[in-house]
Design a protein around this nucleic acid. Sequence first.
DNA 1: TGATTTTCAGAACCTACAGTCTGCAAATGG
DNA 2: CCATTTGCAGACTGTAGGTTCTGAAAATCA
Lengths: 206, 206
Amino acid sequence: MSMPDPDRTPPRRSRGRPRGFEPHEALDAAVRVFWAEGYEGASVNRLSRGMRMPKASLYQAFGDKEGLFLAAVHHYGDTRLVPVAQAIGPNGSLHDDLCAFYEAAVRLGTADPATPGCLISCVLAEVAGTNPRFRAELGARFTALETRLHSRLLAGRSEVIGDSDPAVLAVMLASVARGMMVRARAGADRDMLQAVGRATVDLISR
Amino acid sequence: MSMPDPDRTPPRRSRGRPRGFEPHEALDAAVRVFWAEGYEGASVNRLSRGMRMPKASLYQAFGDKEGLFLAAVHHYGDTRLVPVAQAIGPNGSLHDDLCAFYEAAVRLGTADPATPGCLISCVLAEVAGTNPRFRAELGARFTALETRLHSRLLAGRSEVIGDSDPAVLAVMLASVARGMMVRARAGADRDMLQAVGRATVDLISR
DNA sequence: TGATTTTCAGAACCTACAGTCTGCAAATGG
DNA sequence: CCATTTGCAGACTGTAGGTTCTGAAAATCA
């Protein structure tokens, strides 16, 4: 919980023995381990090793495994998802922005064969089945993307083909993205997924 | 592995003590437990209790937990997915068939709050991250749905709006379905998801 | 230097897990 | 009625899980 902000280095070294791990890289490693192996599949020992962070420090920083996972999800959002969401814009035309969005999403889901798909749609979604905290987190993240897409559609409503409800269209566009992420988990051809993204955009704009 | 066929009752009771569980219901219970709690989240003791099947019989029938999970996935496919796939038809117009497909999918993913989403897209997808057997199973199931949708699009190609590649369109339609299932895992409004299905169909046909 | 603070390494703890074994129960066949 | 077959309940096993603890290590401060 009290993981020091990796961006703001303290002006003067604090007292006590200095830590031997990099907070930012540690969280990033946790993201990769959870992403590849799932929540239950990733043991704390495995995480501790991957993060190069002693178990004692890990528990002091995050409380428990659940806290670590939630922190990893946030880090994943900040480092992986924010760029994808930013592609939505508005940056250029609606068509171009949505293409950029899908392109970024597909790249994310197929970048590393060790971490296929999306941490949110594939891993968080599974454990959301019974854990209410995880389910709330999942719902919030899903709603946030849909809201963002909805705003973008409203901003470019003149470029939308047809007369579908923009709110429904937003959920549909988000569903395509998530479906592609899940598809990538089984090892899908990246070019095929990119084509799916373009085809989707072509259906609703231009 | 040697689970007796629940459909073909043996003509004469075999020797030995008769089993005290219903094979069909046992597998169905396993489906629900895995569906709700995930693969790692469902312990064998929990499964044994839910299935009303002694652990010894369970191991004799399925070998190990992995075998039980795969059997549950197959049972889920036979009992839950086959009807959804059959809705694709061809039964009526392309538009109506696809609407029926999404309607059945959404009903499946939102029928029971204890088992939100889809066993394949939410649970099998997670464990497919590291387990090659599970990943192969996931890939096969995904490809099967896409192939079926592709065939349906080819059969009704005159009803398709636009000039998208039917193969790409098929993957896109499947992605929407999977994305909606994952969305349902966070507890989505059923009517909203139904609207998403209709909107998707309206984009490509009519 | 010594007191203090923080981190670290790894042992220790208890629980829960997947999987096995043993002995009894309940049926059939002769 | 006894042998045989099959299934069952639950104890058992060994391992791995998450979490805590202890004492040493490494830094600062006075």
